[in-house]
Design a protein around this nucleic acid. Structure first.
Ligand SMILES: [Zn+2]
Ligand SMILES: [Zn+2]
Ligand SMILES: [Zn+2]
Ligand SMILES: [Zn+2]
Lengths: 132, 132
DNA sequence: ATTGCAAATGTTATGTTATTACATCAATTG
DNA sequence: CAATTGATGTAATAACATAACATTTGCAAT
């Protein structure tokens, strides 16, 4: 998917996520944008909806948070499942993908005649710095 | 982990999940147990916490719901990461394991010196019946 | 049996995440 | 201009989860 020009609200939300060191909840984003006129959750959720659609932001289901894509410019997401390693101590997120994992998972579901739409892989744990 | 004797509330919550055809939210469980004296969300969440710990129930992060383990008697924790295929139409859940997927994911995070604690793999889509 | 403790439970309130409903505004187009 | 479409603003509410505190229950040590 090619990313169209972002609207004002979309740009504001995206910039907050880009500058952040880790994933943010929608309400945290809202708080950071109050100075820019944001008043209600929906302003954030609507922007996020589009940013997710464009593939420039990911939602981390296991922690109800959002993060800017770590591979800007790539369109690798259209070819495979994205996986995340999330540090539960410092919040750092590593994003990666593995075609063999994709292949195994998609092979299994195809064998069940299941039609996959969206796959979540999230590994919570401790990053190198925090585990030390 | 060996499952100890369930308490009254734990048994009630587990029975509701076992009888259900698909995953249930905590509040749906609460509603189903009002006749048995349940009055507050915490009664459900506390029971779920233990059932998750014992491995007899799984939490589906992407849909904020809970489901009884599909492999009773097995110890899900001993055979690696559990993956789920969740039908977004009828709610049916298929639970499976794939050692190759485990191996690839754990190999990757080990290479990053990341210490994994809990991994979520959830594939949303349409089951065979609903895709037809 | 009584005391003391840990686990489970009950209850109220609150915190957090996400959506519905409806109004308004701005850009495009025929 | 009128109609359409997409974006935005605002208020209210729904859905999910936990905090804080009191009480009860089961059980072991004395
Ligand atoms: Zn990405
Ligand atoms: Zn860390
Ligand atoms: Zn299981
Ligand atoms: Zn189905």
């Amino acid at each position: 998917m090619t990313t169209p020009q972002l609207t004002k609200n979309q740009s504001l939300v995206f910039e907050v996520l880009e500058k952040a060191e880790g994933p943010l909840s929608a309400y945290t984003i809202l708080d950071k944008l109050r100075d820019h006129g944001f008043r209600a959750p929906l302003q954030v959720y609507r922007a996020l909806e589009k940013l997710l659609e464009y593939g420039v932001v990911h939602r981390l289901e296991s922690i109800n948070s959002f993060v800017a894509c770590a591979h800007p410019g790539d369109n690798c997401h259209s070819h495979g499942i994205v996986a995340f390693a999330i540090c539960e101590s410092c919040g750092q997120v590593m994003e990666f993908h593995d075609h063999e994992v994709d292949h195994r998972l998609m092979g299994w579901v195809r064998g069940q005649k299941f039609k996959p739409e969206k796959t979540t892989i999230e590994i919570r744990g401790l990053c190198e710095a925090c585990a030390a």
